[in-house]
Design a protein around this nucleic acid. Structure first.
Lengths: 231, 231
DNA sequence: CGCGCTCTTGACGAACATCAAGCTCCGTGG
DNA sequence: CCACGGAGCTTGATGTTCGTCAAGAGCGCG
């Protein structure tokens, strides 16, 4: 949040005091389920989570991957009913913020409210990026782009550097995120490896050629809106 | 907005008084362009608009279709820089709301602020629906779903009934929205016609069998969050 | 040691893209 | 009133990307 505008001391205090229970989820567990009407919002503090939806056929579409620092269901504060689920891709820890406390915050702190609003807008911008991937890009492009996105976002929150990061996610999950079959994910990853763009072994990704990977995935971080300015 | 929660008289007055200039766009014209830093937000009052992005290759992905009553770039109020464009699919009229006025609103009216926030959250929910379409559904399913979505939303704002609506949009634009080629759109539409699901002639769509079209497109209006409750 | 999960590879098929051509409709100007 | 032109729609032939099915290999875990 502090990356996009400066928070006042009282604002910081208000948001910190809204945090309640510490939560823990093991890999595969759901943080929230489609149809739920949660009483709190969840901020991930460690691990990877994802938003997804299941079709009756059992197919899964992952619509976003969430990292530590992400408010995965802040929208439930106003939408009330979840239109999708959030699951833990790895073991996760998190903090809950009761809707009741958030309501108080919005009543008293207009600027902080706008910053929370902004968080959800950046989420939506992420959805639009994802849409471009699914609609316009080939499987190798999408895959390259996803690696770029995860690395960039991890780097921003200080969880990755030197073009390397832990990514203990299965190829099946990758397929669900990229909208392609797990078999095809495998082939595409082979291809990226062969082109000396990345390595990916035992849950660790190393990006060997950032600029070529960015070009392949047509990645841009504009959608993250990383400029600090009055909002 | 009034469909999701009740507005007070002072809130109604505040939002109405924020409206400034009446705008007019002819078909194909852009309301806002990627990279812009608009000083106002635009509410469409007639016609169809769409959010889209262009790739360097010239391909276009349409990410949402907007109808009268939609605040097409409300997110620019906080995101500041547009990460996509908004174009008029048909002739459009609209109203501008200066960011400055919206800022005043958020400083004074917490509940109204939450309602504006909610508008952008419903937009994001729409993006997630679109993602499911592109990621998991076949071309005929996506197409059926799009017709369901447009009809449902038009019906809500009182612009369609009897399962019929004006839809003066080309098959090329449909392809850009559905992530398939225009040629394939044509074939799929033929198929829907042959199955007596719809007719589509001279810019008018008629849905012949709503429940079968809903089933084909696996459409649900849950993402529109049409329940009126305190937010 | 054996079981299950994930990754890997090959063969085959389906969905959709691309290219190309002809058609319909409609507005425009002579 | 008709000829013309252009935009959009329609249809066919061919090619590519990716899905599905199937089988085997590696690896961690009980």
């Amino acid at each position: 949040m502090q990356l996009r505008d400066t928070l006042g001391l009282d604002e910081k205090r208000a948001i910190i005091q809204s945090a309640r229970d510490r939560l823990h989820f093991s890999s595969g567990e759901d943080l929230v389920v489609e149809g739920d009407r949660p009483m709190r919002c969840v901020l991930v503090t460690s691990g990877f989570a994802c938003r997804y939806r299941l079709l009756p056929s059992g197919e899964r579409q992952i619509m976003a991957i969430h990292l530590p620092g992400d408010f995965v269901d802040l929208h439930s504060f106003l939408l009330k009913e979840m239109d999708h689920s959030v699951g833990a891709l790895t073991e996760c820890t998190a903090v809950g913020f009761p809707h009741e406390s958030l309501l108080q915050v919005t009543e008293r702190f207009p600027h902080l409210t706008r910053m929370l609003w902004l968080m959800t807008l950046i989420d939506a911008a992420g959805h639009r990026e994802w849409l471009i991937g699914l609609g316009l890009l080939s499987a190798p492009q999408r895959t390259a782009r996803l690696f770029c996105e995860i690395y960039k976002r991890l780097e921003i929150v200080g969880l990755a550097r030197d073009h390397e990061f832990r990514f203990p996610v299965t190829q099946v999950a990758m397929g669900d995120a990229l909208g392609i079959s797990a078999v095809h994910v495998n082939r595409v990853v082979q291809e990226l490896r062969q082109q000396d763009l990345i390595t990916w072994e035992r849950g660790t990704v190393r990006i060997l050629d950032w600029s070529r990977l960015v070009a392949t995935g047509q990645f841009s971080d504009r959608y993250l809106h990383l400029v600090r300015e009055p909002r």
